[in-house]
């Protein structure tokens, strides 16, 4: 029975960690839908956002103020990305855009380190990375408070964004642009504003993910690689699907923890880093369009 409890614990911890992957993957999906490009800068955005946040806190700004100032900063990053990078490249091939986002990633990494230095920062959110007593008492499960908080925050953000897309005018505009930017433009939907919205949303997502991860492992460059775990998530979930990003994140989160704990020892441990990619490759062979990859609707 304790073995089973332990298994549940591993799965729950994995799912909670997975919500973070879902969240970051969501940032990719947004930009993929709006500009049909895989935003390689997303990892750098996570790093940039949380480093800026910690930097603002070090300057003495209160938590909430630092949070909103960082969001504004990410909005600005989105604005300049739209104006200086995406707009001039609007009619270029998707490969060109991809290269541009890789370049943007390097620029953000460089800027972040130039502005805030290279050493690992501590980020204390006031939430410990240890089990919550009442959950132990009631279920016998050891669930970390930080994991649980991260899971809840990610869930709230994801639901919020989903509602925004489904029920607001901006959301409708975004979905229209995702389907056909030319047609969207022909009925007066301003592509620039939609891009700005998308990049700002991706920036917020990046900041939150960076904060949650940074609180556990320190704010450091490794966050960039952590964020790139969204790639296997997207392969599993499908690049253009919001539900796919969510489910894919949970699958990656849970399976990498389970594999780490039960299979890891045979490989000498630490397989978390690459297990998701192996999983993704199997998925690619089995279902190249991803679990939720939207069926490409052909025009009649």
């Amino acid at each position: 029975m304790t073995d089973f409890l332990f298994f549940i614990e591993v799965v729950v911890a994995g799912l909670l960690a997975g919500t973070m992957y879902s969240l970051v993957a969501l940032g990719f999906v947004l930009i993929y839908k709006a500009s049909s490009t895989f935003n390689f800068a997303q990892g750098a955005m996570v790093f940039f956002a949380v480093l800026a946040f910690v930097g603002f806190m070090e300057l003495g700004l209160p938590f909430v103020v630092a949070f909103f100032v960082t969001i504004v900063l990410m909005g600005l990053v989105g604005f300049f990305t739209e104006r200086l990078v995406l707009k001039p490249l609007m009619n270029q091939s998707e490969d060109t855009l991809l290269m541009a986002t890789i370049g943007l990633g390097f620029v953000l990494e460089g800027l972040a380190q130039a502005a805030w230095g290279v050493e690992v920062r501590r980020l204390d959110l006031g939430i410990g990375d240890f089990p919550i007593p009442w959950i132990i008492d009631s279920t016998g499960l050891f669930i970390s408070a930080l994991d649980l908080t991260a899971g809840l925050v990610a869930a709230v953000l994801i639901i919020g964004l989903a509602l925004l897309f489904k029920y607001t005018k901006m959301g409708l505009g975004l979905r229209a642009v995702a389907d056909d930017p030319g047609a969207a433009s022909s009925i007066g939907i301003p592509l620039g504003n939609i891009m700005l919205l998308v990049w700002t949303a991706a920036g917020i997502v990046a900041l939150v993910a960076g904060m949650m991860w940074g609180a556990r492992a320190g704010v450091q460059f490794a966050l960039v690689d952590l964020a790139l775990k969204a790639l296997p998530v997207l392969i599993i979930g499908g690049f253009s699907s919001i539900p796919g990003a969510i489910v894919g994140g949970l699958i990656i989160g849970a399976s990498e923890k389970v594999l780490e704990v039960y299979v890891g020892p045979y490989f000498g441990g630490a397989i978390e880093g690459w297990a998701p990619y192996v999983l993704a490759i199997f998925f690619l062979l089995w279902r190249p369009e991803g679990l939720f990859g939207e069926k490409i609707i052909r025009r009649v």
Partner: peptide, 16 residues
């Protein structure tokens, strides 16, 4: 058309 939007969402988008 916006293929993944409903007919009605398509029309409403026209009022953007």
């Amino acid at each position: 058309c916006f293929a993944h939007l409903t007919v009605e969402e398509n029309i409403i988008a026209g009022a953007y």
